[in-house]
């Protein structure tokens, strides 16, 4: 029943790589906001943020080396956040579809 988490010592090289990537991506996302991508700007910004968050979760927070349960908890958190965001936005996106009589 116990799922032992092998205690994994992450090499310092990995930390250095993740850190460098995070810093570079921070400045990339700042720069890219000045480029006109139309409605894609927010999606690019969010994708970069998701990427940065993922490497923090995977390497700094050791989820990559963690138990299956930890991975499941992380995934369920993301799923539920999506429930909250997308189901509500579903209302916001479709609210205008049906006209108001008399208006």
């Amino acid at each position: 029943m116990q799922e032992h988490s092998e205690h994994h010592i992450v090499p310092k090289r990995v930390y250095a790589l993740v850190f460098t990537t995070l810093i570079i991506m921070t400045w990339v996302t700042a720069w890219i906001s000045t480029v006109d991508l139309g409605p894609m700007n927010i999606w690019v910004a969010l994708s970069i943020a998701v990427f940065k968050a993922s490497i923090v979760v995977l390497f700094f927070m050791h989820v990559k080396y963690g138990t299956r349960l930890t991975k499941m908890i992380v995934c369920s958190g993301i799923l539920w956040l999506m429930f909250l965001l997308f189901v509500t936005m579903g209302d916001m996106w479709t609210r205008g579809w049906m006209g108001v009589p008399g208006r």
Binding site: V87, G90, D91, M92, W93, T94, R95, G96, W97, M98
Partner: peptide, 8 residues
């Protein structure tokens, strides 16, 4: 009965 979209 709020102003929630009927589709939602």
């Amino acid at each position: 009965v709020s102003s929630q979209s009927a589709y939602a």
